[in-house]
Design a protein around this nucleic acid. Structure first.
Lengths: 131, 131
DNA sequence: ATGATGCGTAACCGTACAGTTACATGAATG
DNA sequence: CATTCATGTAACTGTACGGTTACGCATCAT
């Protein structure tokens, strides 16, 4: 069912991606890198936290393969790698239909469809109402 | 610039959303709820962890407004609320262009465009190459 | 060589999470 | 009313962050 791209080899990778995106500073770093590659120090001065803090964020982003790093003299230039974000995009893709349609109407439909097979106690609970 | 929906009042909300999505179990709960609303116990038996663990996950999902809960007899029925995911979608929207185009070519373009104003040390670093 | 620059890492601290077991509470049921 | 069922919460534990300061180590400049 699931179509898997070449670079998205392991679902474990997706794990690291979502986790890396959990921090607002790291998302901001990615947003910054969208404008172009930057050296670590340059990235750090754009944030109110200390430089080692950014260094650790970059380590996590590296671990998630969301950035790549290459040395240039004594600089470490970081480059955005948007590839892992495809997995996030395809995950959220399955939810996009919920707000592109009339929002709750579709969900109500699916809910009613699966109601008789998955639910078992809720109908009994509704019976007790007209005691 | 940014268009803000009614329910996405604060950018702080987006914070909670991304953080809630960081855990694979919570994402799986949402995936499950996509098939229809479920009681807490029913959700719990679908996972290898204990029921209180799921209860805490549900609390986080509630805090992020990704699910809504209503009592039905002695059951707590949880319902998916995809609304906060719109913020995630619009965030990743800005990255979608990176893989819809010829991947790195666009990024190289943007990088070159902003190079002269944002960069300051890298050109000096490249100058030292042809000493 | 000496020193300044750029950057990562170690050590440390506080907090939040993910999991557990044990307990409390409210609703259905006999 | 006692009991079972459904669920949340408290208490506790281990681990991983996110932040700091101090340090180590290359690399460039003099």
């Amino acid at each position: 069912m699931r179509h898997r791209s070449v670079t998205d080899s392991a679902p474990q990778m997706t794990e690291a991606t979502f986790q890396a995106l959990a921090d607002p500073t790291r998302r901001a770093v990615l947003d910054l890198l969208r404008r172009g590659s930057q050296a670590a120090g340059q990235i750090a001065i754009a944030f109110p936290v200390s430089r080692p803090a950014i260094s650790k964020h970059l380590r996590l982003l590296r671990r998630a393969h969301l950035v790549s790093e290459h040395r240039e003299g004594r600089h470490r230039v970081y480059e955005l790698n948007p590839e892992p974000l495809r997995a996030v995009d395809s995950w959220i893709e399955q939810y996009r239909i919920f707000w592109t349609n009339s929002l709750n109407s579709l969900k109500a439909f699916v809910e009613a469809e699966h109601a008789r097979e998955t639910q078992l106690a809720s109908d009994k609970a509704s019976q007790r109402k007209h005691k």
